[in-house]
Computed example of a mutant assay.
Amino acid sequence: MKAGYKLPEVTFHTRVRDDSIEGPNPFKWEDKTTSDYFKGKRVVLFSLPGAFTPTCSTYQLPGFEKGFADFQAKGIDAIYCMSVNDAFVMNQWAKGQNLENVGVIPDGSGEFTRRMGMLVRKDNLGFGLRSWRYAAIVNDGEIEAWFEEPGLCDNHGEDPYGESSPENLLKYLDAKAAEAAA
């Protein structure tokens, strides 16, 4: 659906560790752009409704974390998880999930998600504006393949999951490799 689409250029307000800062919160603000994350790389980007939520924390994020070596073997340079959450929440979620391979991108204001056409209302769960669940293979800032959960709409009564699973993206990469070898 969005294959061939160039990612929107936005600025993400992140918090990064700075060892020169003492105390319990040794982090500083660092702005990063879409290009900082995606330029010159082939990456997996997946976005989900919220950090610390059940499907995201139990299946999707851990699946990408555990499957990182498989993705690397198929030509993926990095895997990024995005959510309409601030940098503090995303960093604590990454810490709680013991992430070593998947990077988190905070889309606190939802600007990237809105410009991707994936911003939905989740007022029925008390979340407000959030991302619809999707994943993409992104090559140098351009979408190579798109994996969107069915039923995109505001206040959806369910949380569909399957299309954007790590297993589904690996199937795509296997098929792409087989096609190239033929």
Rank of each mutant, 00 (worst) to 15 (best):
Y37E: 07
A3G: 08
F52M: 04
I143Y: 06
F38A: 08
A182R: 14
F112H: 00
I143E: 07
F112R: 01
E111S: 04
P24L: 12
I137W: 02
G126K: 04
E9T: 10
V138A: 11
F68I: 12
T14M: 10
G141Q: 10
A87G: 01
E167C: 03
K122N: 14
G117T: 07
F127K: 09
L45S: 11
N124T: 10
G50T: 02
G96I: 07
G4Y: 08
P24C: 08
L7C: 05
G4C: 10
Y172A: 02
V16K: 05
M118K: 15
D18C: 06
S131R: 00
L45H: 11
S164R: 05
S83K: 00
A180G: 07
E144V: 11
W132M: 09
D140H: 10
K66V: 15
E148W: 04
W93L: 04
D123T: 09
F88C: 09
G103Y: 03
C81H: 01
A51K: 00
F127H: 11
W93Q: 03
S47H: 03
E111W: 01
Q92F: 13
W132T: 05
G103H: 11
G50E: 00
A135N: 10
Y5D: 13
N168Q: 13
A135E: 09
A69I: 07
K32C: 00
I21Q: 11
Y37A: 06
A73C: 03
F127T: 02
Y161K: 07
E100G: 15
E179S: 15
F52D: 03
V102A: 02
M116F: 08
G40V: 07
A78F: 08
D18N: 15
P62L: 08
G63A: 09
V89R: 00
P62I: 09
W132F: 14
G151E: 04
D19C: 02
E167T: 13
D154L: 08
E144L: 11
A136L: 15
N139V: 15
K2M: 15
E65D: 07
I79R: 09
E167L: 11
L152A: 05
Q92M: 13
F64G: 07
S165R: 03
E142Q: 14
A135V: 11
A78S: 15
C56H: 00
F112M: 04
S109G: 14
E142V: 15
P26C: 05
A136V: 14
V120L: 05
K6Q: 15
G23W: 02
L7I: 06
K66L: 14
I105V: 13
K32V: 01
L129G: 01
F46M: 10
E144A: 10
D36Y: 04
F127A: 13
N124I: 13
A94S: 12
K66M: 14
M118D: 04
N85C: 04
S109P: 01
S131T: 08
A175N: 14
G157P: 06
